[in-house]
């Protein structure tokens, strides 16, 4: 019936200052330490490293210097591969956990599946380095079994970067897709079966379309987190090919060039924003 929802939010006459007193600290913090830094970064990106007035060189450099441009291409390629591979690996896994594992073991199975998710990500990347190193576990196993004669170059490659990323995002996506599958009312599946659909067709026509919005959200999250990560490519990929975050950090670390680092950060953010706007149509499905 009722306007209660509305009255519930009516101001108690205790004082109109109270609500502002409650929200101002959080808003102030966000303005001071999130919005203001952003403005500072924007202004900085428009100045030259050597000092002096307004300039667009930092941005024009990105488009004229092929190695900068290449870093963005690398980032986009790696992110795209990681997103697709992670979704393809995680979906069947989440499905098995949600459908094939007995109900009482599911919580445990899921907890185990995402346990390494909680290791520090510096440590996680380092662990992969151990596994993929020249004389690491995998190469020892391969040479030991005689499958290869020479150890393979696994670490410090794009393959290593992708592996490290996929490891993390498989866990993240398993979590989100599992939640999605469990939220699906069993009545849908029963109804489909009742109307004569076999398990395969039920999955294709009912389960998959209904979980697609969730997958899109997970994939977008993967994209955002992956493209902005510095640690994984730095530890596992080495400096053989640079990704955008590495490029940004390089400007600060080696040259102290804040203006250029700011400009590159803003370009990176712009790419994420464009990706968001491109996906917004699918991301909205979930809210509807």
């Amino acid at each position: 019936m009722n306007p209660t929802g509305n009255d519930g939010r009516a101001l108690p006459r205790a004082g109109r200052a109270l609500p502002w007193a409650l929200v101002t600290p959080a808003l102030g913090w966000t303005l001071l330490f999130f919005v203001l830094p952003f403005i500072a970064m924007g202004l900085s990106s428009l100045t030259a490293h050597e000092g002096g007035g307004f300039t667009l060189t930092n941005y024009s450099q990105f488009f004229t210097n092929p190695s900068y441009w290449q870093a963005m291409v690398n980032s986009l390629e790696v992110t795209a591969i990681v997103t697709v591979v992670s979704v393809l690996l995680a979906y069947p896994f989440a499905w098995i956990l949600a459908e094939q594992v007995p109900e009482r073991w599911q919580r445990l199975a899921l907890m185990l599946a995402v346990l390494p998710f909680w290791t520090s990500y510096v440590v996680r990347s380092y662990s992969w380095l151990l596994v993929l190193a020249q004389n690491g576990v995998i190469n020892r196993a391969l040479t030991g079994s005689g499958l290869v004669t020479e150890p393979l170059q696994l670490a410090n490659t794009r393959f290593a970067t992708v592996t490290g990323f996929v490891h993390f995002f498989v866990m993240l996506l398993t979590l989100t897709i599992f939640a999605n599958l469990k939220q699906l009312s069993p009545s849908y599946r029963k109804a489909a079966a009742d109307l004569g659909a076999g398990p395969v067709r039920t999955f294709l026509h009912v389960v998959l379309p209904l979980t697609l919005p969730g997958i899109m959200v997970g994939a977008f999250l993967t994209f955002v987190l992956c493209i902005g990560d510095y640690i994984t490519p730095q530890i596992l990929g080495g400096n053989n090919e640079l990704l955008m975050p590495q490029l940004v950090m390089m400007q600060i670390g080696r040259r102290g060039d804040f203006p250029l680092a700011s400009a590159l950060s803003i370009i990176l953010m712009a790419v994420v924003t464009i990706a968001y706007l491109a996906c917004a149509r699918w991301l909205k499905i979930e809210r509807a």
């Binding site: 019936m1 009722n2 306007p3 209660t4 009255d7 519930g8 009516a10 006459r13």
Partner: peptide, 18 residues
């Protein structure tokens, strides 16, 4: 019936709505 204003009247009596 729903929307007749009865709950609002009660909220006014209770002091939750001015």
């Amino acid at each position: 019936p729903s929307g007749s204003g009865k709950t609002t009247l009660l909220s006014i009596l209770g002091g939750f709505v001015t």
